Amino acid sequence: MSSTATTESTVPEALLRIRDLRVSFPGKGWRAPRTEILKGVSLDIRPGETLGLVGESGSGKTTIGRAVLGLVPARSGSVTFDGERIDTAKPSRRRELSRDLQVVFQDPYTSLNPSRTVGDTLSEPLLGHGASVREARGRVGDLLERVHLPPDAASRLPREFSGGQRQRVAIARALALRPRLVICDEPVSALDLTTQRTVLELLLEIQEETGVAYLFVTHDLSVVRFMSHRVAVIKGGSLVETGDAHDVTTDPRHPYTRALMLSAPVADVAEQRRRRESAATLGGEAAAPTADAG
Rank of each mutant, 00 (worst) to 15 (best):
T4I: 13
T7E: 15
L15K: 02
R17P: 10
I18M: 15
R19L: 03
D20P: 02
G29K: 10
R31Q: 05
A32L: 12
E36P: 10
G40K: 09
T50F: 05
L51E: 03
E56F: 00
S57G: 08
G60K: 04
T62C: 06
T63S: 13
I64L: 08
I64D: 00
G65Y: 02
A67Q: 12
L69F: 01
V72Y: 08
A74I: 08
S76M: 02
S78C: 05
V79G: 06
E84R: 07
E84I: 04
I86M: 07
E96P: 06
R99K: 14
V103G: 03
V104I: 12
P108Q: 05
S111P: 01
G119S: 09
G119V: 07
G119K: 09
D120E: 15
D120A: 13
E124V: 08
L126T: 13
G128Y: 03
G130R: 15
A131K: 11
S132Q: 02
R134H: 07
R134Q: 12
R137K: 14
R137C: 05
D142S: 01
L143H: 01
R146A: 12
R146F: 07
V147N: 06
P150W: 01
A153E: 11
L157W: 02
P158C: 13
P158W: 06
E160T: 08
S162D: 11
R168Q: 14
R168S: 01
A170L: 01
R173T: 06
A174S: 14
A176I: 00
L177H: 14
R178C: 11
P179N: 04
L181R: 02
A190T: 09
L191E: 02
L193Q: 15
L193G: 08
T194R: 15
L200P: 01
I206T: 02
Q207E: 11
E208T: 09
E209Q: 14
G211Y: 02
A213Q: 07
A213R: 01
Y214D: 09
L215W: 00
L215I: 04
D220L: 03
D220F: 02
D220H: 05
V223L: 01
V224W: 03
M227A: 04
G237P: 08
G237C: 05
G237E: 06
G237L: 03
S238E: 14
V240F: 00
T242R: 11
G243F: 04
D244G: 09
A245H: 00
A245C: 00
H246S: 08
D247T: 14
T250A: 01
T250P: 02
P252N: 12
P255S: 09
Y256N: 10
A259K: 04
L260W: 07
S263E: 06
V266T: 14
Q272S: 10
A279S: 13
T281M: 05
L282K: 14
G284D: 15
E285Y: 11
A291N: 11
A293C: 12
A293D: 15
